[in-house]
Structures are given as structure tokens and as C-alpha cells.
């Protein structure tokens, strides 16, 4: 897929996120603006509890925005039917899947649900898309295993294959690198980068792996206490955005290497 004409997949406009409570609303972050382009890898970073998950939950329509607008392929998110949304946006969450008794193939095949008939029969096209997704994340040898037999890293790849099989413009992943060792963290994020290049899909993920995200992402959304800054990693470094991310008593950002160092 060529990306000659840059196309905006997901757009947030003066977005205010948080929770409605009985006494009013608890605002997590306000005035969030970004335009995610086709074929880009976007990392969402920020300290614990800063609202990364709230932002992702709002973007995937699990919870409503307090105010502002979200556009998916130029259509307002709240106007999309759940089926139309399912054909444009797929997700990989941190929560465990309910049934680990499913085989890997069955799980990936579930990604075809928005396209299949009332009982979920797979056509030849569906099957080739499923196999393609399985090949893209290199899990062909796991195809017939059941999910409870898999390691965390393998399961994460399977969930990614399921999202790919859903054949959407954008994939949103909530902390895909949790519970993984250093090698697999890099592996998964590198795989995401490859996928954006090979398939032209937009991939948005939240992560605590700021060092890796800086190296791999096209653009990043950095959430701090007051706002969310959207820019390319090198611009974010030169603006000194990462310096203010954490309290400086323990770790500091080294702009030369683009990574955090522990104060000795």
C-alpha cells in the first residue's frame, strides 16, 4: 500500500477526558489535540496514573469524552455505529481474554466477526486474511496451540494478529509491552513499526518504554499533568518535554542519548 497522499486517520480536537461523577466531573486531562496520519507508529507515554488508559479508552469509545471531538476517518466517533467502528478500529487491551481454551487460529479468526455472516462462517477471503495476519506476526508454528499454553509474549503476538485480522485502518494497543522481558519488549515494538510500514496501518500504543518509543515511533503523544504534547520524538527532545515527565530526584533525561539515566 502506498501512502503518497497523507491521510488523517484519527483526529482529536480540544478533547477533555475524565470521568463523570455524581458531584460533577473529574477531569483527567484537557485540551488534547492531535492528528494521527496513515501508516504511522505513534507512542503514547506518561507517568503512571496520568491518564494514558483514560485517553485510549475514550479514543476506542469505551468511555465518553467530557467535551471536544474525536474524528475517525473524518467521521465523528460518537456517530459511528459499533459495526462501522469495528471495521475501522481494532484494539489490544491489557485485560486477559476470558477463555484461554481457544486455539490460536480460533482466536485470530474472531477478528473477522465484523465481516462474517450471522453464524460466523469464514469465506476463502476471510481465511487468507487470517493466515496473512498469522504470518505477519510470525506465529505460524503456534497456530494450533491453545491460549493457556502460550507465554505472555506469544499471547501478545496472537492478540496483535487478531487485531490485524480485523483489517482496520488503525490499531490501538494499551501497554502491549507489560509483563514482557527486555528482548520481547523491543521485539513487539519493532514488530509494530514493521507492520505500519508493511501494511500502511496506523498503530497507536501506550507504553512505559520511553527509550524504545523514542527510537521507533514516527510521532509521540506525551502526557504530563497539565497537557498532552503531540510531536515527532526529536522535536519533543529538543523542546525538553521529557525532562518534565517525572520528578527529578531519581532519574533524569539525557537528551544526547535520548534515554533516562538514574542519578548516581
Amino acid at each position: 500500500m502506498t501512502t503518497l497522499k497523507q491521510h488523517i486517520i484519527l483526529k482529536a480536537e480540544a478533547l477533555k477526558i475524565g470521568y463523570k461523577t455524581r458531584s460533577g466531573e473529574t477531569v483527567v486531562t484537557s485540551d488534547i489535540n492531535f492528528e494521527l496520519q496513515q501508516g504511522q507508529l505513534i507512542g503514547l507515554v506518561g507517568a503512571n496514573g496520568i491518564g494514558k488508559s483514560t485517553l485510549l479508552r475514550t479514543l476506542i469509545k469505551v468511555q465518553p469524552a467530557l467535551s471536544g471531538n474525536i474524528y475517525l476517518n473524518e467521521k465523528a466517533l460518537e456517530e459511528l455505529s459499533s459495526l462501522a467502528l469495528a471495521k475501522q478500529l481494532s484494539i489490544v487491551l491489557t485485560e486477559q481474554i476470558t477463555s484461554k481454551n481457544l486455539s490460536v487460529y480460533e482466536l485470530v479468526a474472531l477478528g473477522r466477526h465484523p465481516y462474517t455472516n450471522w453464524i460466523g462462517n469464514l469465506t476463502k477471503t476471510d481465511q487468507s486474511i487470517i493466515y496473512n495476519a498469522i504470518n505477519l506476526v510470525n506465529i505460524t508454528e503456534l497456530k494450533d496451540k491453545r491460549c493457556y499454553e502460550l507465554s505472555d509474549g506469544q499471547l501478545q503476538k496472537v492478540m496483535l494478529a487478531r487485531a490485524l485480522a480485523q483489517d482496520t485502518d488503525i490499531i490501538v494497543l494499551d501497554e502491549p509491552t507489560t509483563h514482557l522481558d527486555m528482548y520481547h519488549k523491543a521485539y513487539i515494538l519493532k514488530l509494530l513499526q514493521q507492520l505500519t510500514k508493511e501494511t500502511g496501518k496506523t498503530i497507536l500504543f501506550s507504553s512505559h518504554e520511553i527509550d524504545l518509543a523514542i527510537q521507533l515511533c514516527d510521532t509521540m503523544i506525551v502526557m504530563t499533568k497539565d497537557n498532552a504534547i503531540y510531536d515527532a520524538p526529536c522535536n519533543l527532545i529538543s523542546k525538553g518535554v521529557f525532562d518534565g515527565l517525572f520528578p527529578r530526584d531519581l532519574i533524569a533525561f539525557d537528551s544526547k542519548s535520548g534515554s533516562f539515566r538514574v542519578n548516581k
Binding site: 469495528a86 481474554i97 476470558t98 481457544l102 474472531l110 466477526h113 480485523q166
Partner: peptide
């Protein structure tokens, strides 16, 4: 079909339409 989607959990099932 819906029952099979539910095997993934509520949020995933919803994301499948």
C-alpha cells in the same frame, strides 16, 4: 457468533461490533 465474541471479554466483544 455473539457467544464466541464474548469469549474474549466484554470490551473485545464490543470492539468486534
Amino acid at each position: 457468533k455473539g457467544l464466541n465474541s464474548l469469549l474474549l471479554g466484554d470490551n473485545y466483544a464490543k470492539s468486534l461490533g
